[in-house]
Design a binder for these strands. Sequence first.
DNA 1: TTGATAGTGATTACCTTTTATCAATATAGC
DNA 2: GCTATATTGATAAAAGGTAATCACTATCAA
Lengths: 127, 127
Amino acid sequence: MAIERRTTRQKEAIKTVLDEQKGPLLPDDIHRLAIKTVPSLGIATVYRSLKNLQEEGLVCCVEIPGQAPRYERSDKGHHHHFHCRDCGQVFDLQKCVAGGLKNLAPAGFEVTDHEIILYGTCKACSS
Amino acid sequence: MAIERRTTRQKEAIKTVLDEQKGPLLPDDIHRLAIKTVPSLGIATVYRSLKNLQEEGLVCCVEIPGQAPRYERSDKGHHHHFHCRDCGQVFDLQKCVAGGLKNLAPAGFEVTDHEIILYGTCKACSS
DNA sequence: TTGATAGTGATTACCTTTTATCAATATAGC
DNA sequence: GCTATATTGATAAAAGGTAATCACTATCAA
C-alpha cells in the first residue's frame, strides 16, 4: 500500500515558497527561502520533498542548459522561461510561439514538444 | 608568449569527426568515433582538444537541458537543435523563428539571444 | 496520552563529468 | 638525426549535485 503522508512544517514551508515564486527555483534557493519559516530545515528534506511533490504531480522540473534543475508548480500551463545573465534568476514567460515551430523540423521528424529559452537582462537588472 | 601548437594525429582525428557530423556530439561520442582513426586515443585528449578548439573559436558548446555538453563546429551560423527521445541523438535544424521571440518577454526585459530545442522522434527512429 | 511509524537533519556516500598529474612519446626546428 | 618541449594516455582526483544512512523527532489515529 501507499505510504501514509503526514503534514509537516517543513513541507508546508517548501510548498509555500514554491507558491509565491514567479519562476522556477533551485533546491538551494528553496532551502534558503524556506529556512526563514523553518530555521532547522535541512537541504536533504528539500530534495526529498521535491521528489515527493513531483511524484504527486504538484511540482515539475525546469532545466536551463548547463545549470542544475529548477522546480516550479506544475499548474502553470504551457509556458517558457527567461534567464537573466546578470542575476541568474529564471522568470516565467506568458506567451508561446509554438505555432511556428512545427515546420522547423525536417521532413520525417516528428515533433512532440519543444523548449524555448530567452536570455538577456531582466527588468530589475537593466534599470 | 603563446604556446607553440603542434599538429598531431589525435587532434586531426577529432577535428575530422566534428567536420563530418550533422549535429553536436558528446565528448564520449567523439572519442568513440575518433578512436577508429587513432585507436590509442584517450578520453583526456578529447577533452583537452575540445577546450583548445573552443579557445581558438573553431568549436562551440551546445547544451540540451539535463544532459552533458555537446560540441560542434562553430561555423554553422545561427541554428537550433532537435533531440530525438528515442535514440538520444541531437540534430541541427536549419531554420529559426527568432522573429517572433522578442515579444515573448515582458516589458523591461532585454532579450539578447535565445535557445529553441525541439523534442520528438527523428526520421530514422520514426520509420 | 500513547504508540506506531513517517519525517527530519547532519552527514556520508555516490555518480557523472571534467580536470590534474606525470612518465612516456611524438613533433618540428636545427 | 638530434634535441627541446608540446602532447599524449592511464589514472587519480576534483567538482557539483543528489541520494542513502541512521538516530532522533514529530505526527496522528486510537
